[in-house]
Write a protein that binds this DNA or RNA. Structure first.
Lengths: 364, 364
DNA sequence: TAGAGTCTTGAATCTGAGG
DNA sequence: TCCTCAGATTCAAGACTCT
């Protein structure tokens, strides 16, 4: 049976495309990817790029022009791959980029210029950075990630509650303390040296993917390297697409990925918050006889309101929904009526939210 | 006796110039300043109002000086003041800029374009940031500073050993953990409200000035505000030049500065009290692969629970944090999950707290 | 007076389903 | 695409109040 989603069928899911990032992305259908994670190079060889706009070759130039030419070439490269990434993203898709002070400011400015909307910048604080041997600078102990939506109006996935759980029950912050990739996790080549100069730790990708994708999402990494993004995506039950120019890295990554197993479905489930709970109209409590029309509800200050048959409340001065009457009585901009009002049972004041819980329990 | 350094005599040392930053800098002689510290407008682009969960309103930065028509307008402004700052700096001078993700990428790219040479980016990790009230983003818990030399060939002051001392004898890192400016240090207006929306903590400036200036150096702050840079410079025996557009801030800063005394050469050790044992989220054991998602933990009674990817546990009847599930299984009001649960290694049951100790050891 | 509990506040790009 | 409205959402410090 053929897929009916045009283009989607041609996505090279869970494969590594060996080739140039920009060209390989250009071959992907638009609007087909949920998340892009990119660790772009910043030590580009710009030798062939040092030409003035009129094509005259830059010879013994002053420092300023030389530097400008280099930055300009890097910016062209950056904008090209960012534009392709943006095209390939779904409307509610998002992008993560990681970099250091050498390139991250240029990348950040470029992605803002292209219409990406920054959601957070995140600091990866390394527990075990390389010290600065010459004592001329501060120990460069962090890298910067930018998390951006495809546009200002995009509504990217954000698993707030799962990240809060990962952080012992308090809201996840924008600074992440994680060790660099070393020890057994660090891939080695035949000579026993590190296989890739900038292999990222799996813990970093774990947090990114748990926080900003769901099971079954498609994650694209246009600078795949040795495939950390793919390895963590596979483990977490996400689909990946990797693009890597160097065949040696492709081979290492493929070997690595073949050894990765997807986790059990039970382990992949994450905590969700109240927002994921089904909505219960207050009127349903009245319809179902859990509250009688005419019954009196009371707030924390002892103020009263009566229930009407259509599920609205009426107090001395106001009528409207449980939320509207609560907000009016408190002079507040908004109010959650479910936790604001109580009803009386056996002489006790009980929050009406208990009744909503009861209905939700029946729905399960 | 007249100064032999041309122009230097006309520097408004230890004064506040009330006026536009760019114009006021243009009036200063070239090559006359050792360090520029700049806290420019962030271009926050806030839309509606924001309320805390308790319905109180957040007093956000909505001042005129922070509003720009577009990124292009902001970039023009940025390049103009950066160019003047560069002209005013001595050949071996340096610049510090502070910003957030709203503006720092544009500022960083612009200063690279103008020929500044980045030495480090520094993260100010706030111990007490404002949380994200709607649960839609990560807590924005840091700001970024860029430290750059006037050019690639500049050799700016760097007091490596002084910073090492400030950091308990180990090399100073690029991430600085400091509280925001609050309490008695925060300047108040007549009504008792904050005098300035973005007053920086003195501890931050202390570290910047100790690290990158010497006694007697000239420090220019083109966005002086309420004068934190001047106050710390005066305390540390550096000369300052402040530029501030708003006469109200100038007045507050002058009053503040009149009360500051230069320190005796001993003295002034800012914060860095004894750190408590760092909190380790259980989730980090999962992210770092020390425990596999799906792995079984066992309590003293032999009851089991499985680890999920967000660092929560799931048993037959309950799910939640290591503490919550332990408490539920014991019918106890609370439970220390770290000592309650064990995992299996080499046929032995090992408390998970052993893994926490391991992480803490790495952090030291 | 010490300690416990409550209130206030901080550079914020802070909603989304349904009609 | 716009409008309406349900209803979900916070951490660390310092100041202040009460016992």
């Amino acid at each position: 049976m053929t897929s009916t989603r045009t283009g989607a069928a041609s996505l090279p899911l869970n494969q590594i495309v060996c080739g140039d990032s920009i060209e390989a992305m250009a071959a992907l259908p638009a609007g087909s990817v949920d998340l892009v994670f990119a660790d772009p190079p910043y030590n580009l060889q710009l030798k062939g790029e040092l030409h003035r706009p009129d094509n005259s070759r830059v010879d013994a130039v002053d420092d300023d022009w030389d530097r400008f030419a280099s930055f300009e070439a890097y910016d062209r490269f950056t904008r090209a791959w960012l534009a392709e990434a943006r095209r390939v993203l779904k409307p509610d898709g998002a992008l993560w980029v990681i970099g250091s002070y050498h390139n991250i400011f240029r990348v950040g400015a470029s992605l803002q210029d292209l219409g990406f909307w920054i959601l957070n910048d995140v600091i990866w604080r390394k527990t075990n950075p390389m010290p600065n041997f010459r004592g001329k600078r501060l120990t460069n102990a962090h890298e910067t990630l930018i998390w951006a939506g495809r546009s200002e109006s995009a509504r990217p996935t954000f698993n707030y509650d799962a990240l809060k759980q990962l952080n012992e029950g308090v809201q996840m912050r924008s600074d992440w303390v994680l060790p660099i990739c070393a020890g057994g996790e660090r891939l080695k080549d035949a000579a026993g040296d590190k296989a890739h100069p900038t292999q990222k730790p799996q813990s970093l990708l774990h947090r990114v993917l748990v926080g900003s994708t769901n099971v079954g999402d498609v994650v694209l990494d246009p600078f795949f390297g040795t495939g950390t993004t793919g390895a963590v995506a596979k483990m977490l039950g996400r689909d990946f697409i990797g693009i890597e120019r160097d065949p040696a890295y492709v081979e290492i990554a493929e070997r690595r990925l073949s050894r990765v197993r997807k986790l059990s479905n039970e382990a992949l489930e994450v905590t969700t918050g109240k927002r994921a709970e089904p909505r219960v109209p207050f009127g349903q409590l009245v319809e179902r006889g859990m509250l009688r029309p005419g019954e009196v509800l009371v707030n924390a200050r002892g103020q009263q309101a009566r229930v009407r048959v259509d599920g609205t409340l009426v107090s001395d001065s106001v009528k409207g929904s449980i939320h509207q009457v609560g907000a009016a009585l408190d002079g507040a901009p908004s109010c959650n009526g479910w936790t604001y009002w109580t009803y009386t049972r056996d002489g006790q004041q009980v929050p009406i939210d208990a009744l909503r819980q009861q209905i939700r329990a029946e729905m399960r």
